[in-house]
Amino acid sequence: MAAAAAAGAGPEMVRGQVFDVGPRYTNLSYIGEGAYGMVCSAYDNVNKVRVAIKKISPFEHQTYCQRTLREIKILLRFRHENIIGINDIIRAPTIEQMKDVYIVQDLMETDLYKLLKTQHLSNDHICYFLYQILRGLKYIHSANVLHRDLKPSNLLLNTTCDLKICDFGLARVADPDHDHTGFLTEYVATRWYRAPEIMLNSKGYTKSIDIWSVGCILAEMLSNRPIFPGKHYLDQLNHILGILGSPSQEDLNCIINLKARNYLLSLPHKNKVPWNRLFPNADSKALDLLDKMLTFNPHKRIEVEQALAHPYLEQYYDPSDEPIAEAPFKFDMELDDLPKEKLKELIFEETARFQPGYRS
């Protein structure tokens, strides 16, 4: 834990890192770190609560700039109880001085990944967590956004079992017609939660990839272990087919990539493993919904509104309290091709509203 900075004593240090967030945020305490930044909790002297502050230093890398800009653009436009918001952003007053960006968010005690390492969940908890994931996802999908990296560590939890989806750095506007060349190379989302079509096709992607990830998360809540822990690309596919069985001819016809289709045709026939054999203690309604989410063919996979209306979630289902976005989200430009200098300018502009004396 960093010592509390005395008023006016300059930035606090946390594990050798400068955290320049005073005077409003003090009493910093280390939480963890990701690929390009550290997260601390801090005391907000204005709202009198502890908050989470993520320090991001992305400006050396085009990919990190892209992810940072995506996350900020999306989260500043989203407003939903099951999606983490941005409360404040701290950065230098000029673009030349801006080396880091500090993002202030609600402090959540833990995440689903940490929880599943230590606790076996009751059916009631599984049901409530799944409902909140789908409630947040309904809003995301209504904005025409794909999260693309749903996994237990991106689901934040607090002691009252509130759940918030975080990390929109890989999110995209849904565009089933656009052929994202190089899709697989830039697709760094965790393999275990990846839909089979991501490994088999490169053309376009749809909201059904997020539903697949939610199915993987439900299976993990039922058993405290990942359902498809593939060691590499082909191993991942083999794990999936080992449980779902061989795809039907109709399902194979959806695979545009001939090499991928021929690979699947070359494999020995596998039978589907019954879900109640894998999860003998699970609620039968939970397994019915799991089956509809972990469907090989993305066109037959359940959609988020149908999933919310499934009998497993009937005690929570309330369409009048499951809000959607006001308007579909649009990125003005494809960020993939922009140089990091341009992305830095866009991050600077996007964060201006939090600067003292800002006038829109």
Results as ranks from 00 to 15, higher is better:
Pro23Arg: 04
Arg194Met: 04
Met293Gly: 01
Ala92Ile: 02
Arg67Thr: 08
Gly136His: 01
His178Ser: 11
Ala174Val: 14
Leu338Asn: 09
Ala307Trp: 00
Thr351Asn: 10
Leu107Pro: 00
Ala4Thr: 13
Asp291Tyr: 13
Leu338Pro: 02
Ile84Met: 05
Asp149Glu: 12
Phe19Met: 04
Asn47Glu: 13
Trp212Val: 05
Tyr113Leu: 04
Phe296Arg: 01
Ala6Val: 11
Ser41Lys: 07
Ile324Val: 00
Leu313Trp: 05
Val173Ala: 12
Ala3Phe: 07
Asn27Ile: 15
Gly16Arg: 14
Gln355Phe: 02
Tyr25Lys: 04
Leu218Val: 04
Asp175Leu: 11
Met199His: 10
Val21Asp: 02
His180Val: 06
His80Ile: 04
Phe354Asn: 08
Val273Gln: 01
Val51Phe: 13
Asp44Asn: 13
Cys40Met: 11
Asp283Ile: 08
Asp332Asn: 13
Tyr43Cys: 12
Lys272Ala: 08
Leu252Val: 03
Lys73Met: 13
Asp149Thr: 01
Ile53Phe: 14
Gln236Gly: 02
Asp88Thr: 02
Asp179Leu: 04
Leu137Asn: 00
Leu116Phe: 06
Tyr43Ser: 13
Val18Trp: 01
Tyr128Gln: 06
Phe331Asp: 12
Ile126Asp: 02
Gly230Asn: 00
Ser360Pro: 14
Ala282Cys: 08
Ala35Tyr: 13
Val173Gly: 11
Ile140Met: 06
Cys254Trp: 08
Ala195Ser: 13
Val49Ser: 11
His178Trp: 10
Ala9Ile: 05
Glu186Tyr: 08
Gly230Tyr: 02
Leu258Met: 15
Pro58Ile: 15
Cys216Gly: 10
Leu294Glu: 11
Gln236Asn: 02
Ser122Asn: 11
Leu264Lys: 04
Gly357Asn: 05
Leu200Phe: 08
His232Lys: 02
Ser153Gln: 04
Ile53Asp: 01
Pro328Cys: 03
Gly10Gln: 11
Asp288Cys: 10
Lys270Gly: 08
Met13Leu: 15
Cys254Lys: 03
Met108Gly: 05
Gly16Trp: 00
Ile83Glu: 01
Glu96Arg: 09
Pro328Arg: 04
Arg277Trp: 09
Leu115His: 01
Trp212Arg: 14
Lys330Thr: 00
Glu326Ser: 03
Asn224Lys: 13
Arg359Trp: 15
Asn87Ser: 00
Asn281Met: 04
Asn276Pro: 03
Asn45Thr: 13
Ala325Lys: 03
Ala7Tyr: 13
Ala309Glu: 09
Thr351Trp: 08
Leu28Arg: 07
Gln355Ile: 06
Phe348Ala: 07
Ile243Gln: 05
Asp149Pro: 03
Glu349Asn: 08
Asp337Ile: 10
Arg359Ser: 15
Ile140Trp: 03
Ala6Ser: 12
Glu305Cys: 07
Asn238Gly: 09
Arg148Asp: 05
Ala325Tyr: 01
Gly169Pro: 02
Lys344Val: 09
Met13Phe: 04
Leu134Phe: 12
Tyr187Arg: 03
Thr63Val: 09
Gly169Arg: 05
Lys207Phe: 09
Thr181Met: 09
Ile227Lys: 04
Asp167Ile: 02
Asn224Met: 05
Pro196Leu: 07
Ala35Asp: 12
Glu326Gly: 00
His299Leu: 15
Met38Ser: 13
Asp288Gly: 00
Tyr193Ala: 05
Ala42Gly: 11
Lys330Asn: 11
Ser202Asn: 11
Ser41Asn: 13
Asp235Arg: 08
Cys161Glu: 06
Ala42His: 12
Ala7Val: 05
Glu345Ser: 11
Ser213Pro: 04
Asn144Cys: 09
Ile95Phe: 15
Leu116Gly: 06
Glu345Lys: 13
Glu349Thr: 02
Leu200Gln: 14
Asp291Cys: 06
Thr63Ser: 14
Thr94Tyr: 06
Ala352Trp: 07
Thr190Tyr: 11
Ala7Ser: 13
Arg50Ile: 13
Leu244Cys: 04
Ile140Phe: 14
Thr63Met: 12
Leu75Pro: 15
Leu252Trp: 04
Val21Phe: 01
Lys292Ala: 09
Pro226Asp: 00
Asp124Ala: 14
Ala92Pro: 02
Ala2Lys: 00
Arg70Pro: 00
Tyr312Ser: 00
Leu157Gln: 14
Ile89Leu: 05
Ala5Ile: 04
Leu137Trp: 01
His80Cys: 01
Arg225Cys: 10
Arg191Asp: 07
Ser122Gln: 09
Asp251Met: 06
Asn271His: 12
Cys166Pro: 07
Leu76Asp: 00
Ile83Met: 00
Asn154Gln: 12
Asn82Trp: 07
Lys73Trp: 04
Ala307Gln: 01
Asn158Val: 07
Thr94Trp: 08
Asp20Phe: 12
Pro356Phe: 03
His125Lys: 04
Gln249Ser: 03
Lys48Thr: 13
Tyr36Asn: 15
Trp212Asp: 08
Glu345Asn: 08
Gln17Arg: 13
Leu267Met: 15
Phe129Met: 06
Pro274Ile: 03
Asn276Gln: 10
Lys207Arg: 11
Lys300Gly: 08
Leu343Tyr: 08
Trp275Ser: 07
Tyr187Cys: 08
Ala189Lys: 01
Phe59Gln: 13
Pro298His: 15
Gly357Gln: 13
Ile31Asn: 15
Leu157Pro: 09
Asn238Leu: 12
Thr351Val: 03
Glu96Asn: 06
Met38Val: 13
Asn276Leu: 05
Gly182Cys: 12
Tyr358Lys: 12
Val145Cys: 09
Arg24Glu: 08
Phe296Cys: 03
Ile209Cys: 09
Ile217Pro: 03
His239Arg: 00
His178Glu: 10
Glu109Asn: 07
Asn123Gln: 10
Val104Thr: 03
Gly245Val: 13
Val173Lys: 03
